[in-house]
Amino acid sequence: MLIGVPKEIKNHEYRVGMTPGSVREAVTHGHEVLVQTVAGAGIGASDADYRAAGARIADTAAEVWAQAQMIVKVKEPQAVERAQLRAGQTLFTYLHLAPDPEQTKDLVASGATCIAYETVTAANGGLPLLAPMSEVAGRMSIQAGASCLERSKGGRGLLLGGVPGVEAGKVLILGGGVVGSNAAIMAIGLGAQVVVIDRSVDVLRRLVAQFGTSIQTAVSTRDSIERHLADSDLVIGGVLIPGASAPKLVSKAMLKLMRPGAVIVDVAIDQGGCFETSRATTHAEPTYEVDGIVHYCVANMPGGVPRTSTMALNNVTLPFILELANKGARQALLDNLHLRAGLNVAGGKVTNAEVAHALGYEAVDPLTWLK
Protein backbone atom coordinates (compact mmCIF):
# COMPACT_ATOMS: atom_id res chain seq x y z
CA MET A 1 0.00 0.00 0.00
CA LEU A 2 1.10 3.57 -0.67
CA ILE A 3 0.82 5.52 2.59
CA GLY A 4 0.83 9.30 2.48
CA VAL A 5 2.01 11.63 5.24
CA PRO A 6 1.19 15.30 4.54
CA LYS A 7 2.51 18.22 6.55
CA GLU A 8 0.01 19.38 9.18
CA ILE A 9 -1.46 22.79 8.39
CA LYS A 10 -3.58 23.60 11.44
CA ASN A 11 -2.43 26.70 13.35
CA HIS A 12 0.83 25.98 15.18
CA GLU A 13 0.51 22.23 14.65
CA TYR A 14 4.01 20.78 14.57
CA ARG A 15 3.27 17.07 15.00
CA VAL A 16 3.49 14.61 12.12
CA GLY A 17 1.53 11.45 11.35
CA MET A 18 4.52 9.13 11.12
CA THR A 19 8.05 9.37 12.49
CA PRO A 20 11.01 8.12 10.47
CA GLY A 21 11.02 5.04 12.70
CA SER A 22 7.38 4.30 11.86
CA VAL A 23 8.10 4.83 8.17
CA ARG A 24 10.96 2.36 8.34
CA GLU A 25 8.67 -0.23 9.92
CA ALA A 26 6.06 0.24 7.19
CA VAL A 27 8.69 -0.05 4.46
CA THR A 28 10.04 -3.21 6.10
CA HIS A 29 6.53 -4.65 5.74
CA GLY A 30 6.64 -4.00 2.00
CA HIS A 31 4.75 -0.72 1.80
CA GLU A 32 5.63 2.59 0.16
CA VAL A 33 5.50 5.83 2.14
CA LEU A 34 5.24 9.27 0.55
CA VAL A 35 6.08 12.11 2.95
CA GLN A 36 5.59 15.78 2.15
CA THR A 37 8.78 17.79 2.35
CA VAL A 38 9.51 19.28 5.82
CA ALA A 39 6.51 17.41 7.29
CA GLY A 40 8.69 16.30 10.19
CA ALA A 41 10.52 19.58 10.77
CA GLY A 42 8.51 20.31 13.92
CA ILE A 43 9.86 17.20 15.64
CA GLY A 44 13.39 17.65 14.32
CA ALA A 45 13.06 15.00 11.57
CA SER A 46 14.53 16.10 8.24
CA ASP A 47 13.70 14.94 4.73
CA ALA A 48 17.04 13.12 4.82
CA ASP A 49 15.88 11.22 7.91
CA TYR A 50 12.75 10.11 6.08
CA ARG A 51 14.69 9.13 2.96
CA ALA A 52 17.05 7.07 5.12
CA ALA A 53 13.98 5.29 6.53
CA GLY A 54 12.88 4.42 3.00
CA ALA A 55 10.31 7.13 2.26
CA ARG A 56 9.91 9.13 -0.91
CA ILE A 57 9.63 12.89 -0.48
CA ALA A 58 6.87 14.85 -2.22
CA ASP A 59 7.27 18.54 -2.97
CA THR A 60 3.63 19.38 -2.30
CA ALA A 61 0.69 18.20 -0.22
CA ALA A 62 -1.32 17.81 -3.43
CA GLU A 63 1.04 15.04 -4.56
CA VAL A 64 0.56 13.17 -1.30
CA TRP A 65 -3.23 13.43 -1.36
CA ALA A 66 -3.42 12.51 -5.06
CA GLN A 67 -1.20 9.42 -4.89
CA ALA A 68 -1.71 7.86 -1.46
CA GLN A 69 -4.15 5.03 -0.85
CA MET A 70 -4.10 5.82 2.87
CA ILE A 71 -3.46 9.21 4.46
CA VAL A 72 -2.01 9.21 7.98
CA LYS A 73 -2.32 12.52 9.83
CA VAL A 74 -2.59 13.91 13.32
CA LYS A 75 -5.29 16.60 13.27
CA GLU A 76 -8.60 16.66 11.45
CA PRO A 77 -8.29 17.56 7.76
CA GLN A 78 -8.81 21.23 7.05
CA ALA A 79 -11.19 22.33 4.28
CA VAL A 80 -8.48 22.46 1.62
CA GLU A 81 -7.42 18.94 2.56
CA ARG A 82 -10.95 17.55 2.67
CA ALA A 83 -11.45 18.76 -0.89
CA GLN A 84 -8.69 16.37 -1.99
CA LEU A 85 -10.15 13.23 -0.38
CA ARG A 86 -11.65 10.69 -2.73
CA ALA A 87 -13.75 7.54 -2.70
CA GLY A 88 -11.69 4.44 -1.98
CA GLN A 89 -9.07 6.40 -0.03
CA THR A 90 -8.56 5.77 3.69
CA LEU A 91 -8.02 8.61 6.15
CA PHE A 92 -6.56 7.72 9.56
CA THR A 93 -6.33 10.65 11.99
CA TYR A 94 -8.11 12.47 14.81
CA LEU A 95 -11.49 13.70 13.56
CA HIS A 96 -13.65 14.89 16.52
CA LEU A 97 -16.72 15.12 14.30
CA ALA A 98 -19.55 15.61 16.80
CA PRO A 99 -19.08 19.40 17.16
CA ASP A 100 -17.96 19.87 13.53
CA PRO A 101 -20.84 19.64 11.01
CA GLU A 102 -18.84 21.18 8.14
CA GLN A 103 -16.07 18.59 8.38
CA THR A 104 -18.60 15.77 8.64
CA LYS A 105 -20.47 16.99 5.57
CA ASP A 106 -17.25 17.12 3.55
CA LEU A 107 -16.12 13.67 4.66
CA VAL A 108 -19.50 12.20 3.79
CA ALA A 109 -19.36 13.87 0.36
CA SER A 110 -15.85 12.52 -0.29
CA GLY A 111 -16.89 8.87 -0.13
CA ALA A 112 -13.61 8.11 1.68
CA THR A 113 -13.14 5.66 4.54
CA CYS A 114 -12.49 7.88 7.57
CA ILE A 115 -11.18 6.27 10.75
CA ALA A 116 -10.90 8.43 13.87
CA TYR A 117 -8.13 7.79 16.37
CA GLU A 118 -10.32 9.00 19.22
CA THR A 119 -12.97 6.28 18.89
CA VAL A 120 -10.73 3.24 18.33
CA THR A 121 -11.26 1.01 21.37
CA ALA A 122 -9.30 -1.56 23.38
CA ALA A 123 -10.23 -4.86 25.00
CA ASN A 124 -10.24 -3.18 28.42
CA GLY A 125 -12.79 -0.62 27.25
CA GLY A 126 -10.24 2.20 26.91
CA LEU A 127 -9.41 4.49 24.01
CA PRO A 128 -5.78 3.59 23.26
CA LEU A 129 -5.16 6.18 20.53
CA LEU A 130 -6.71 9.01 22.50
CA ALA A 131 -5.02 8.15 25.80
CA PRO A 132 -1.47 9.39 25.05
CA MET A 133 -2.68 12.77 23.81
CA SER A 134 -5.03 13.01 26.79
CA GLU A 135 -2.05 12.34 29.02
CA VAL A 136 -0.10 15.13 27.34
CA ALA A 137 -3.05 17.55 27.33
CA GLY A 138 -3.87 16.80 30.96
CA ARG A 139 -0.33 17.59 32.04
CA MET A 140 -0.14 20.65 29.80
CA SER A 141 -3.42 21.99 31.18
CA ILE A 142 -1.80 22.74 34.52
CA GLN A 143 1.26 24.24 32.85
CA ALA A 144 -0.94 26.47 30.66
CA GLY A 145 -3.31 27.34 33.49
CA ALA A 146 -0.51 28.28 35.87
CA SER A 147 0.89 30.61 33.22
CA CYS A 148 -2.52 32.21 32.61
CA LEU A 149 -2.87 32.96 36.32
CA GLU A 150 -0.07 35.52 35.98
CA ARG A 151 -1.44 39.05 36.25
CA SER A 152 0.14 40.16 32.97
CA LYS A 153 -1.98 37.50 31.22
CA GLY A 154 -5.23 38.53 32.85
CA GLY A 155 -5.09 36.11 35.75
CA ARG A 156 -5.39 36.62 39.49
CA GLY A 157 -1.66 37.17 39.91
CA LEU A 158 -1.30 33.95 41.83
CA LEU A 159 1.50 31.38 42.03
CA LEU A 160 -0.33 28.07 41.85
CA GLY A 161 1.87 26.26 44.36
CA GLY A 162 2.19 29.20 46.76
CA VAL A 163 5.29 29.71 48.90
CA PRO A 164 5.94 29.11 52.61
CA GLY A 165 3.51 31.26 54.55
CA VAL A 166 1.24 31.86 51.53
CA GLU A 167 -1.64 29.55 50.68
CA ALA A 168 -1.41 27.56 47.44
CA GLY A 169 -3.98 28.00 44.70
CA LYS A 170 -6.93 25.67 44.26
CA VAL A 171 -7.37 23.54 41.13
CA LEU A 172 -10.78 22.09 40.29
CA ILE A 173 -10.69 19.22 37.79
CA LEU A 174 -13.93 18.23 36.08
CA GLY A 175 -13.59 14.60 35.02
CA GLY A 176 -11.34 11.97 36.58
CA GLY A 177 -10.35 10.09 33.43
CA VAL A 178 -7.00 10.20 31.63
CA VAL A 179 -6.98 14.00 31.30
CA GLY A 180 -8.08 14.54 34.88
CA SER A 181 -5.68 12.11 36.49
CA ASN A 182 -2.73 13.53 34.56
CA ALA A 183 -3.77 17.09 35.44
CA ALA A 184 -3.89 15.99 39.07
CA ILE A 185 -0.34 14.60 38.87
CA MET A 186 0.99 17.97 37.72
CA ALA A 187 -1.13 20.07 40.08
CA ILE A 188 -0.12 17.99 43.08
CA GLY A 189 3.50 18.20 41.97
CA LEU A 190 3.28 22.00 42.03
CA GLY A 191 1.82 21.94 45.52
CA ALA A 192 -1.67 23.13 44.61
CA GLN A 193 -4.88 22.21 46.42
CA VAL A 194 -6.67 19.75 44.12
CA VAL A 195 -10.33 18.75 43.89
CA VAL A 196 -11.55 16.23 41.30
CA ILE A 197 -15.23 15.93 40.42
CA ASP A 198 -16.57 12.93 38.50
CA ARG A 199 -19.95 11.29 38.13
CA SER A 200 -18.51 7.83 38.86
CA VAL A 201 -17.75 6.86 42.45
CA ASP A 202 -15.56 4.05 41.12
CA VAL A 203 -13.41 6.61 39.29
CA LEU A 204 -13.13 8.66 42.46
CA ARG A 205 -12.12 5.56 44.43
CA ARG A 206 -9.37 4.89 41.89
CA LEU A 207 -8.09 8.44 42.21
CA VAL A 208 -8.05 8.29 46.00
CA ALA A 209 -6.17 4.99 45.81
CA GLN A 210 -3.66 6.68 43.49
CA PHE A 211 -3.23 10.03 45.22
CA GLY A 212 -4.39 9.46 48.79
CA THR A 213 -4.96 12.62 50.79
CA SER A 214 -3.24 14.79 48.17
CA ILE A 215 -6.62 15.35 46.54
CA GLN A 216 -10.25 15.87 47.52
CA THR A 217 -13.03 14.26 45.49
CA ALA A 218 -16.71 14.95 44.93
CA VAL A 219 -19.50 13.34 42.93
CA SER A 220 -20.59 15.49 40.02
CA THR A 221 -23.77 17.42 40.78
CA ARG A 222 -24.72 20.98 40.00
CA ASP A 223 -24.37 21.76 43.69
CA SER A 224 -20.85 20.32 44.02
CA ILE A 225 -19.65 22.08 40.87
CA GLU A 226 -21.05 25.45 41.94
CA ARG A 227 -19.65 25.09 45.45
CA HIS A 228 -16.12 24.40 44.26
CA LEU A 229 -16.19 26.92 41.40
CA ALA A 230 -16.63 29.69 43.95
CA ASP A 231 -13.14 29.38 45.44
CA SER A 232 -11.15 27.73 42.63
CA ASP A 233 -8.33 29.57 40.92
CA LEU A 234 -7.93 27.16 38.01
CA VAL A 235 -10.64 24.91 36.55
CA ILE A 236 -9.74 22.09 34.16
CA GLY A 237 -12.42 20.65 31.87
CA GLY A 238 -11.55 17.04 31.16
CA VAL A 239 -14.87 15.29 30.59
CA LEU A 240 -15.32 12.87 27.70
CA ILE A 241 -18.18 10.93 26.14
CA PRO A 242 -16.47 8.95 23.34
CA GLY A 243 -17.46 10.28 19.93
CA ALA A 244 -20.15 12.60 21.32
CA SER A 245 -20.23 16.29 22.15
CA ALA A 246 -18.97 17.11 25.63
CA PRO A 247 -21.69 17.94 28.17
CA LYS A 248 -21.85 21.59 29.21
CA LEU A 249 -21.16 21.36 32.94
CA VAL A 250 -20.55 25.07 33.58
CA SER A 251 -23.03 27.62 32.26
CA LYS A 252 -22.29 31.27 31.54
CA ALA A 253 -24.33 32.24 34.61
CA MET A 254 -22.09 30.05 36.78
CA LEU A 255 -19.03 32.12 35.82
CA LYS A 256 -20.35 34.85 38.11
CA LEU A 257 -19.67 32.51 41.03
CA MET A 258 -15.96 32.57 40.22
CA ARG A 259 -13.38 35.08 41.35
CA PRO A 260 -12.19 37.64 38.76
CA GLY A 261 -8.99 36.50 37.12
CA ALA A 262 -9.68 32.79 37.69
CA VAL A 263 -8.71 30.58 34.74
CA ILE A 264 -10.58 27.92 32.78
CA VAL A 265 -8.65 25.40 30.65
CA ASP A 266 -11.10 23.43 28.51
CA VAL A 267 -9.29 20.29 27.37
CA ALA A 268 -12.64 18.97 26.08
CA ILE A 269 -12.77 21.70 23.41
CA ASP A 270 -12.07 19.17 20.62
CA GLN A 271 -15.49 17.71 21.42
CA GLY A 272 -17.17 21.09 21.75
CA GLY A 273 -16.02 21.97 25.28
CA CYS A 274 -17.62 21.44 28.69
CA PHE A 275 -18.10 25.16 29.47
CA GLU A 276 -20.96 27.01 27.81
CA THR A 277 -18.65 29.95 27.11
CA SER A 278 -15.89 27.89 25.47
CA ARG A 279 -14.87 28.44 21.86
CA ALA A 280 -11.83 26.95 20.19
CA THR A 281 -8.65 29.03 20.25
CA THR A 282 -5.18 28.54 18.80
CA HIS A 283 -1.63 28.52 20.08
CA ALA A 284 -1.23 31.91 18.39
CA GLU A 285 -4.13 33.44 20.36
CA PRO A 286 -4.82 30.97 23.16
CA THR A 287 -7.00 32.96 25.56
CA TYR A 288 -9.95 35.30 25.85
CA GLU A 289 -12.04 36.61 28.75
CA VAL A 290 -15.71 36.23 29.57
CA ASP A 291 -17.04 38.06 32.64
CA GLY A 292 -13.50 38.47 33.97
CA ILE A 293 -12.67 34.75 33.68
CA VAL A 294 -9.70 33.79 31.49
CA HIS A 295 -10.54 31.00 29.03
CA TYR A 296 -7.78 28.85 27.51
CA CYS A 297 -9.38 26.64 24.84
CA VAL A 298 -6.60 25.61 22.46
CA ALA A 299 -7.95 22.76 20.36
CA ASN A 300 -4.59 21.12 19.69
CA MET A 301 -2.76 21.53 22.97
CA PRO A 302 -0.33 18.61 22.43
CA GLY A 303 0.83 20.31 19.22
CA GLY A 304 2.79 22.66 21.47
CA VAL A 305 5.08 19.80 22.50
CA PRO A 306 5.33 17.97 19.18
CA ARG A 307 8.35 15.79 19.88
CA THR A 308 6.81 14.22 22.96
CA SER A 309 3.34 14.05 21.41
CA THR A 310 4.36 12.56 18.08
CA MET A 311 6.48 9.85 19.67
CA ALA A 312 3.71 8.97 22.13
CA LEU A 313 1.09 8.92 19.37
CA ASN A 314 3.16 6.78 16.99
CA ASN A 315 3.73 4.23 19.74
CA VAL A 316 0.03 3.41 19.65
CA THR A 317 -1.00 4.17 16.05
CA LEU A 318 1.72 2.18 14.29
CA PRO A 319 0.21 -1.29 14.89
CA PHE A 320 -3.09 -0.09 13.40
CA ILE A 321 -1.35 1.62 10.46
CA LEU A 322 0.41 -1.64 9.67
CA GLU A 323 -2.80 -3.67 10.01
CA LEU A 324 -4.64 -1.33 7.64
CA ALA A 325 -1.77 -1.41 5.15
CA ASN A 326 -1.15 -5.15 5.35
CA LYS A 327 -4.77 -6.22 4.96
CA GLY A 328 -6.39 -3.27 3.26
CA ALA A 329 -8.88 -1.11 5.11
CA ARG A 330 -11.98 -3.22 4.50
CA GLN A 331 -10.47 -6.50 5.69
CA ALA A 332 -8.69 -4.89 8.62
CA LEU A 333 -11.94 -3.31 9.77
CA LEU A 334 -13.80 -6.61 9.42
CA ASP A 335 -11.14 -8.50 11.37
CA ASN A 336 -10.59 -6.02 14.20
CA LEU A 337 -13.66 -4.87 16.11
CA HIS A 338 -11.62 -2.30 18.05
CA LEU A 339 -10.34 -0.68 14.86
CA ARG A 340 -13.87 -0.89 13.48
CA ALA A 341 -15.07 1.23 16.40
CA GLY A 342 -12.90 3.99 14.93
CA LEU A 343 -14.80 4.02 11.64
CA ASN A 344 -16.77 7.29 11.65
CA VAL A 345 -17.59 7.90 7.99
CA ALA A 346 -17.44 5.51 5.04
CA GLY A 347 -18.85 5.42 1.53
CA GLY A 348 -20.89 8.55 2.09
CA LYS A 349 -22.45 7.28 5.33
CA VAL A 350 -21.93 8.14 9.01
CA THR A 351 -21.00 4.91 10.79
CA ASN A 352 -20.55 6.23 14.33
CA ALA A 353 -23.79 6.37 16.34
CA GLU A 354 -22.70 9.25 18.61
CA VAL A 355 -21.63 11.41 15.69
CA ALA A 356 -24.85 10.64 13.81
CA HIS A 357 -26.95 11.52 16.85
CA ALA A 358 -25.07 14.77 17.48
CA LEU A 359 -25.38 15.98 13.88
CA GLY A 360 -28.71 14.56 12.74
CA TYR A 361 -27.50 11.81 10.40
CA GLU A 362 -28.88 8.31 10.13
CA ALA A 363 -26.29 5.97 11.66
CA VAL A 364 -25.24 3.02 9.51
CA ASP A 365 -23.80 -0.05 11.24
CA PRO A 366 -20.14 -0.36 10.13
CA LEU A 367 -20.59 -4.09 9.50
CA THR A 368 -23.52 -3.39 7.18
CA TRP A 369 -21.34 -1.15 5.06
CA LEU A 370 -18.30 -3.44 5.18
CA LYS A 371 -20.20 -6.52 4.09
Results as ranks from 00 to 15, higher is better:
residue 4 G to P: 05
residue 12 H to W: 10
residue 12 H to F: 11
residue 14 Y to P: 04
residue 15 R to G: 05
residue 17 G to M: 05
residue 19 T to P: 12
residue 21 G to T: 00
residue 30 G to L: 02
residue 30 G to Y: 08
residue 31 H to E: 06
residue 33 V to Y: 06
residue 34 L to E: 13
residue 38 V to K: 04
residue 41 A to T: 09
residue 45 A to T: 03
residue 45 A to Q: 04
residue 45 A to S: 15
residue 46 S to G: 12
residue 47 D to T: 11
residue 47 D to H: 13
residue 47 D to I: 12
residue 48 A to W: 05
residue 53 A to L: 08
residue 54 G to Y: 09
residue 60 T to N: 10
residue 67 Q to C: 02
residue 71 I to R: 03
residue 75 K to Y: 13
residue 82 R to I: 06
residue 87 A to K: 12
residue 88 G to H: 09
residue 93 T to Q: 05
residue 98 A to F: 14
residue 102 E to R: 02
residue 104 T to E: 05
residue 104 T to D: 02
residue 106 D to L: 03
residue 109 A to P: 03
residue 109 A to H: 02
residue 110 S to H: 09
residue 112 A to H: 08
residue 121 T to I: 04
residue 123 A to T: 15
residue 125 G to T: 11
residue 132 P to A: 07
residue 134 S to Y: 12
residue 135 E to K: 11
residue 136 V to K: 08
residue 139 R to G: 01
residue 139 R to A: 00
residue 139 R to H: 08
residue 140 M to H: 08
residue 140 M to A: 06
residue 143 Q to A: 11
residue 144 A to Y: 03
residue 148 C to S: 11
residue 150 E to R: 09
residue 156 R to I: 00
residue 160 L to H: 04
residue 162 G to C: 04
residue 162 G to A: 04
residue 164 P to S: 04
residue 167 E to V: 12
residue 170 K to T: 00
residue 171 V to W: 13
residue 175 G to F: 03
residue 176 G to F: 14
residue 180 G to Q: 05
residue 181 S to F: 06
residue 187 A to G: 09
residue 191 G to P: 06
residue 193 Q to G: 00
residue 194 V to Y: 06
residue 200 S to I: 01
residue 216 Q to S: 14
residue 217 T to G: 11
residue 218 A to S: 12
residue 222 R to G: 13
residue 222 R to H: 15
residue 231 D to M: 05
residue 232 S to A: 15
residue 237 G to H: 01
residue 240 L to E: 15
residue 243 G to D: 03
residue 248 K to C: 14
residue 251 S to A: 10
residue 253 A to S: 15
residue 256 K to V: 03
residue 260 P to C: 01
residue 272 G to L: 03
residue 274 C to W: 05
residue 277 T to A: 07
residue 280 A to R: 14
residue 281 T to S: 12
residue 295 H to F: 04
residue 296 Y to E: 05
residue 298 V to S: 06
residue 299 A to M: 02
residue 302 P to C: 01
residue 303 G to Q: 07
residue 303 G to L: 04
residue 310 T to N: 07
residue 319 P to Y: 04
residue 328 G to W: 14
residue 331 Q to P: 12
residue 331 Q to S: 13
residue 334 L to K: 14
residue 340 R to T: 03
residue 341 A to N: 13
residue 343 L to Q: 06
residue 345 V to N: 01
residue 345 V to H: 01
residue 350 V to P: 07
residue 351 T to E: 02
residue 352 N to S: 06
residue 363 A to W: 13
residue 366 P to L: 07
residue 369 W to Q: 06
